[in-house]
Design a protein around this nucleic acid. Structure first.
Lengths: 134, 134
DNA sequence: ATTCGTATTAAGAACTATTCCTAATATAGA
DNA sequence: TCTATATTAGGAATAGTTCTTAATACGAAT
C-alpha cells in the first residue's frame, strides 16, 4: 500500500463516518453514509481509504465470524461478539490471553503474532424478538 | 440443509480425505485429493458434502483468519493457529474461556453461543526460511 | 437380479465481498 | 494560478462459495 499523502474530501468523510456510525460498520454501510455527503463516491474509494486508514493505525479492521470485514474507530485492543441473527458486532470485555505466557508446544511451535477471540451470540434485541415469536 | 440419506461414493471418499489429509485442509485441497480417487468429482459436490458432514457433526468447519474455510476431522473443541506466511492451520492447546463465568455486561448483554480463538503466527518452517533469507 | 422413484451428481452459472485497472479529476507545492 | 501527479469514479476482475438443472446412481420394493 502506497503511503497516502493527499488529504482528500473522501478520506476525511470516510474517517468521520467510521467514527460517527460507531457500531463496527461494514464497508458497504460506510459507503452508504459517505454517499449522503459525497454522492459520487465509489465503493472502491471507500475500500482503498479504509485500507489506508488501517495502515495508518487510525482505525482497525475487525475480521472474524462472517465474511464481511467490519471497521472499528476504537483502536485499543479488545474483542468482539457478533449476533448470529442480525449480524451486528459489539465489544466484549474479556481479558485476552497473554502471548508471553504461552509455551511453544501449546502452539505447535509457531511464533505467535496475534490472538483474536471471535465470539458468536445473540444480541438482546434479537433474543427478545425470538422470545416473542414463540 | 436437507438431511442426507444416501451413502454415495463421493461422500465416503470426501470424509476419508478430510481424515487422511489431517492438517486442516481447505475445500480445494480436499477436492484435489478426492479427484485422485474419483476423477470426475466436481467442486460443488465437495462443498455440498462438506456442509452435510459438518451438519452431521462428523467434521468441523474452521473459519477465521483468511477467507477460506478449513475442515477438521477432530471434532473435539480446540483452537487453531494460522501461519501468516504459508497459510497452514495447526492446533493450539489454550484452555478455552468458560462461557458460564461471563457476566452479561462483559458481553454487551448478548447470549453467548460460542467462543473461538483465532491466532495468527508464523510456523516453524516459514520462520526458519525467513531467518535464512536475512 | 431387475425395476423404479428420487436423492445426488457434474458442470458451470451466479453470487458476494473485495481488489484491480484506467482515464479523468482534484490536490498541494511552486 | 499553474502544474505534476496522487487520487478518484466507474466498472472489470478475482476468489471462495453457493445455486441451478439435466443426467445419474443409490437403495427399497419387487
Amino acid at each position: 500500500m502506497v503511503e497516502a499523502r493527499r488529504n482528500t474530501r473522501q478520506k476525511r468523510v470516510i474517517l468521520q463516518s467510521v467514527e460517527q456510525l460507531g457500531c463496527h460498520p461494514t464497508a458497504v454501510q460506510i459507503y452508504s453514509a459517505v454517499r449522503k455527503v459525497l454522492p459520487r463516491t465509489s465503493l472502491s474509494t471507500v475500500y482503498r481509504n479504509l485500507g489506508i486508514l488501517v495502515d495508518q493505525g487510525k482505525i482497525k479492521a475487525v475480521k472474524g465470524a462472517g465474511k464481511e470485514i467490519h471497521y472499528d474507530h476504537n483502536i485499543e485492543e479488545h474483542n468482539h461478539i457478533k449476533c448470529s441473527v442480525c449480524g451486528r458486532v459489539c465489544d466484549v470485555n474479556i481479558s485476552p490471553v497473554d502471548i508471553d505466557t504461552l509455551n511453544p508446544e501449546q502452539v505447535s511451535n509457531f511464533i505467535v503474532i496475534e490472538i483474536r477471540m471471535n465470539i458468536l451470540g445473540i444480541c438482546p434485541e434479537c433474543a427478545e424478538q425470538l422470545e416473542k415469536e414463540k
